[in-house]
Amino acid sequence: MPTTELTKDNFDETVTGADIMLVDFWAAWCGPCRRFAPVFERAADEHPDIVFGKVDTEAQPELAASFQISSIPTLMAIRDKTILYAQPGALPAPALEDLITKIRAADMDDVRRQLTARTAAKR
Score class of each variant (00 low, 15 high):
M1V: 14
P2C: 03
T3Q: 05
T3K: 08
T3V: 10
T4C: 09
E5Q: 14
L6G: 04
T7G: 07
K8P: 07
K8D: 15
D9Q: 10
D9K: 10
N10D: 06
N10V: 07
F11H: 02
E13Q: 09
E13A: 13
E13I: 11
V15M: 12
T16Y: 09
G17A: 07
A18F: 14
A18P: 13
D19N: 15
D19Q: 10
D19V: 12
I20Q: 03
M21V: 12
M21F: 07
L22C: 11
L22R: 14
V23Y: 02
V23F: 00
V23G: 04
D24I: 00
F25N: 08
F25K: 11
F25C: 07
W26L: 00
A27G: 07
A27S: 06
A28P: 01
W29I: 05
C30Y: 04
C30S: 07
C30W: 05
P32T: 04
P32A: 02
P32G: 01
R35W: 03
A37S: 13
A37H: 11
P38S: 05
P38A: 05
P38E: 05
V39E: 12
F40C: 11
A44H: 01
A44V: 12
A44G: 06
D45Q: 10
D45E: 10
D45A: 15
I50M: 05
V51L: 11
V51I: 08
G53H: 06
G53R: 06
K54P: 02
V55S: 08
D56Q: 11
E58F: 13
Q60N: 14
Q60M: 03
Q60V: 04
P61G: 15
E62C: 03
L63D: 11
A64H: 10
A64V: 07
A65H: 12
A65G: 13
S66C: 12
F67P: 15
Q68H: 13
Q68S: 13
I69F: 15
I69P: 08
S70A: 10
I72M: 14
I72V: 10
I72Y: 11
P73E: 11
T74L: 12
L75G: 12
L75D: 13
L75Q: 15
A77S: 14
I78F: 04
R79I: 09
R79G: 02
D80H: 02
K81G: 01
K81E: 10
I83P: 01
I83V: 15
A86H: 15
A86E: 11
G89Y: 12
G89Q: 08
A90M: 09
P92L: 07
P92V: 06
P92A: 01
P94V: 09
P94T: 14
A95V: 12
E97V: 01
D98F: 10
L99S: 09
I100Y: 09
I103P: 09
I103L: 08
R104P: 04
M108Y: 15
D109H: 11
D109P: 06
D109F: 03
D110V: 15
D110C: 03
V111H: 03
V111W: 04
R112M: 14
R113Y: 01
R113V: 00
R113K: 08
Q114V: 00
Q114L: 02
L115F: 00
T116D: 06
T116A: 14
R118Q: 07
R118W: 03
T119L: 00
A120Y: 00
A120P: 02
A120N: 00
K122H: 03
R123L: 00
R123S: 02
R123W: 01
